[in-house]
Nucleic acid binder design. Structure first.
Lengths: 201, 201
DNA sequence: AGATATTGCTTTGACATCTAACATTTCGAA
DNA sequence: TTCGAAATGTTAGATGTCAAAGCAATATCT
């Protein structure tokens, strides 16, 4: 901000407007997300969180409740209810851990995989298209901003990056760390452990 | 796409990672928002949407369901259920329009105003503080990005600004148009029409 | 070993949300 | 004027969401 104009009086009101803008935008984004989820439900038979969860499971072949929760940023309780519905529709099965019987693993059924194949992305196609059309720097800017907001809202969860790192935008790395960093119990992050320990419930 | 580095092969994967990052960040933001709402509920007795709605009403003195819905970006049905709860707790009252009997206006009660006085902001204090500490240009960048994302997700709702307008960041205007633009029935946007037509239900 | 703490998941209870179907009212046109 | 279309709200039904309380199993400490 070159700010040749100190804006002596409007300072406060401008700031108010600023974070109010943030609030408004967030509300809209949340709403759009919700509405797209319902749209997905109509055309694909899966809501966004259901799709997210299934993709997560598909990626690893088999996952425990807690792992899924971490990966999709939802509480375990929520994962339970989502899986309840998916299980009822026989899109996934639950398997009780054999060595550690507290754990419950979820696995896709054939039906589940089939449905997942045909399902759209969990993010509006429209958004993806438009996003893809942006210049690299714009995309980076947006991603950085969102991460920044997420970090600022997540209180204690910040572990660095106190400033928007503009220089990073040219390094154009896939930036997977954020997701990885989330995997608390880690499990050594094996690409896709075929079939861990687990037996039919 | 200027991209000094063509990144011949990683192009696709980078893009995937990019919008996937968006998805992850959004999930986190949504979650943080939700969790803060619950926190609010504990400490202030009002959830975020309840607070939003009440502030909205307080600002104008009296508002119809539809107006509120537009202002806080929620469906009318949602407003109805939120107001049901607020009314049950006697924080607001509903008034039927006298000239147009289809309309229903909401007004704060003394209790409602009192509670609203003591309530925190609908956005995490922490977020606001940290946000306020950022440089002007950073704030603008974030606000612009969020608005951009919201616009890209809202499909048909775009009415211009096909490119992130960096130049705008220097003009530092309060930027209220977005909220205004939403007010479809407009009502001529009177600052605070004392007490429109409405009688006790 | 035995008691206690911790971990992993499910249940319960309360909100928030949306769409679709209704009920009322108002408005416009024939 | 009368009738159908449009506008405004509410109801019904389905998900999603989380915190807190429960349960069961494992880990840890003495």
């Amino acid at each position: 901000m070159k700010s040749h104009h100190p804006q002596p009086l409007s300072r406060v009101s401008v700031n108010m407007a600023r974070h109010h803008e943030v609030l408004i935008s967030l509300r809209r984004i949340i709403r759009a997300t919700d509405m797209y989820s319902r749209h997905l439900s109509k055309v694909a038979g899966l809501t966004a969180p259901q799709l997210l969860v299934m993709q997560s499971i598909a990626q690893r072949g088999e996952m425990a409740m807690g792992q899924i929760a971490d990966e999709v940023s939802l509480s375990q309780a929520t994962i339970t209810t989502i899986l309840d519905r998916l299980e009822k529709r026989e899109l996934i099965v639950r398997l009780r851990g054999s060595t550690d019987k507290r754990r419950v693993y979820a696995r896709l059924t054939a039906d589940g995989m089939a449905l997942l194949e045909k399902a759209p992305t969990p993010l509006q196609e429209e958004f993806i298209d438009r996003f893809a059309e942006l210049d690299d720097w714009e995309q980076s800017l947006i991603v950085s901003s969102l991460q920044r907001v997420a970090a600022m809202m997540n209180a204690g969860d910040i572990d660095a990056s106190p400033v928007l790192d503009l220089g990073a935008m040219d390094r154009a790395q896939p930036t997977v760390e954020l997701s990885e960093r989330r995997a608390r119990q880690s499990e050594a992050a094996a690409p896709a452990p075929p079939y861990p320990e687990a037996t039919r419930k």
